[in-house]
């Protein structure tokens, strides 16, 4: 699909984590905005812009609005008052704080969403299995990602079946809770029953056994990518250490 397909999943993950951590450590809104824009450009070039940006908008719009209202209107630490209505004071410091945190969260969310929407999950799983990550982690990740769409379909079928038996999704709170129960109990029961049979099938295939795992998939890795990952980790660690040293609490409280 894109060039990200040639990237080892860990390279993309390291880059995403590194970008997020460095952005957090740097604490400067121009850098955060630049990272966010870069992530958006990469998403457009990767052909996942629609999904990344819509998922990010759902998360970020309420958060940023809330930050703007909270710090824009109520920031007792602020000194430069721009406007005042009763208890609410618009201060320059408050707006700057909202801008800093808003851009920082935006950058981190975009970077991680770009990673999760471009990574090939099978590649990621075999890369995880090749490392000393417990195989159970890979199972939980893969199983959840495949279960989510299946459950949405199942819930739809349960709703239809209950509606065929006379369930009406309208009315007051109590009747709403009643219809909720009619849908939740069959869903939970069916999912747990499925899980039980899945556990038996997995155990029969030796899933619970200790020891190393092998994988059919071989994820291509290269020396350049290994070097990039090492460099990114060193850079990230340096950024964290620099931030910790610069603003160690003794220096903050003065």
């Amino acid at each position: 699909m894109t060039r990200t397909h040639h990237l080892h999943p860990f390279t993309a993950l390291t880059a995403a984590v590194g970008a997020a951590v460095v952005t957090t450590a740097a604490a400067s809104w121009p850098l955060s905005a630049a990272v966010a824009v870069a992530a958006a450009i990469l998403a457009v070039r990767g052909g996942v812009a629609g999904r990344v940006l819509s998922a990010a908008a759902v998360i970020l719009v309420p958060l940023c609005l809330s930050l703007l209202v909270l710090h824009g209107l109520f920031f007792p630490e602020g000194h430069t008052v721009l406007a005042e209505w009763g208890p609410a004071r618009v201060t320059a410091e408050g707006l700057e704080f909202a801008l800093e945190l808003g851009t920082r969260t935006t950058a981190c969310v975009l970077v991680f969403l770009l990673f999760s929407f471009t990574v090939s999950v099978p590649d990621l799983l075999s890369a995880l299995a090749a490392r000393r990550i417990p195989p159970q982690f890979g199972f939980v990740l893969a199983s959840t990602l495949t279960l989510l769409p299946a459950v949405a379909g199942r819930l739809d079928r349960i709703r239809q079946a209950q509606e065929a038996r006379g369930m009406v999704v309208r009315g007051g709170l109590l009747s709403r809770m009643g219809t909720l129960r009619l849908q939740m109990v069959p869903l939970v029961l069916a999912l747990m029953d499925d899980a039980g049979s899945r556990a038996q099938a997995l155990d029969a295939r030796g899933f619970g056994n200790a020891g190393p795992r092998t994988s059919y998939r071989d994820v291509a890795d290269s020396t350049a990518q290994r070097r990039f990952r090492a460099a990114a980790l060193v850079l990230t660690a340096a950024a964290v250490v620099a931030r910790l040293v610069v603003s160690w609490p003794a220096g903050v409280t003065r």
Partner: peptide, 17 residues
């Protein structure tokens, strides 16, 4: 145990749905 492990994805899906 595997019987508990297979419930974790179910739990996550339940959290969301």
């Amino acid at each position: 145990p595997t019987s508990t492990l297979v419930l974790i994805p179910v739990a996550l899906v339940l959290n969301v749905v």
